[in-house]
């Protein structure tokens, strides 16, 4: 069975929001569109987005970490948002595990969003249906696109390639390998939702050097006047054996 998903590498995400607006841009003119923006030029502008990038601070100065944290639908394997939907508008595809909303069936009861612990669904206040990340299902199978572009818009956009896309059930896939190699983890494991999207933690490169590496025989200072042998008395001057 296939389970497509995103793997997000927090080790390189710089919080640029490229994934946010490229997602919006792709989807607003797609099947999910239009993605409503209310108050676009007045107080408290607010619109429907499938993906948000948030910022957290961890620890206290000076040992502070700043974390940029992108989040879209995690396409949970045991998606709690699906069974609660009274209409079947929310569904998880058998073939690739993508969780989708059928906008023609959705009655806008919002119940599925209550059932998502991650706050990944956003209600379109104008279209009155529930929307969420589609994993760009309208890109990834689109044969009119060149093969290397059959990827989610956010993945294509991400300048740090912090967003990997693939089948997390295929142990040989790039995403599975990334999860294995880098201790990839899931969000809120306590609810048994088994999110398909994974996050890769920060990894630090540290340096270790030994004091004696500072001084070396080929130290360039040895070529200068100041470090040449000084003209001071030594044993050579006073012994005679």
């Amino acid at each position: 069975m296939t389970q497509l998903a995103l793997v997000i590498d927090l080790n390189v995400c710089v919080g640029c929001h490229a994934c946010v607006t490229s997602c919006k841009e792709w989807n607003t003119s797609g099947p999910a569109g239009a993605m409503t923006d209310e108050n676009p030029y007045s107080k408290d502008p607010t619109g429907t987005f499938f993906n948000r990038v948030q910022t957290y601070e961890i620890g206290t100065f000076p040992k502070t970490e700043t974390l940029h944290f992108p989040k879209s639908c995690l396409h949970c394997e045991d998606a709690p948002c699906v069974p609660v939907c009274p209409t079947g508008a929310s569904f998880k595809r058998d073939e690739d595990g993508i969780v989708l909303v059928n906008y023609d069936k959705c009655i806008g009861c919002k119940y599925c969003s209550w059932a998502c612990p991650y706050g990944a669904r956003e209600f379109d206040e104008h279209q009155k249906v529930m929307k969420k990340c589609t994993l760009c299902v309208d890109r990834i199978y689109d044969e009119s696109l060149p093969e290397n572009e059959r990827k989610p818009a956010c993945v294509m956009a991400c300048p740090t390639s912090a967003r990997l896309f693939g089948d997390v059930h295929d142990p040989e896939s790039e995403v599975s390998e990334a999860i294995r190699d880098n201790a990839g983890y899931q969000l809120m494991p306590e609810w048994g939702t088994n999110p398909s999207n994974h996050y890769l933690p920060r990894r630090k490169t540290k340096v270790h050097y030994h004091e004696d590496e500072l001084q070396r025989a080929d130290n360039p200072l040895n070529k200068e006047h100041s470090v040449e042998p000084l003209d001071v008395p030594t044993l050579d001057d006073s012994t005679s054996w």
Partner: peptide, 17 residues
């Protein structure tokens, strides 16, 4: 880490969430 604070939600005008 015991000390984590959100500093930005990703939008300032609010959202469905």
């Amino acid at each position: 880490h015991p000390q984590i604070q959100q500093k930005a939600m990703g939008m300032q005008g609010g959202s469905y969430n």
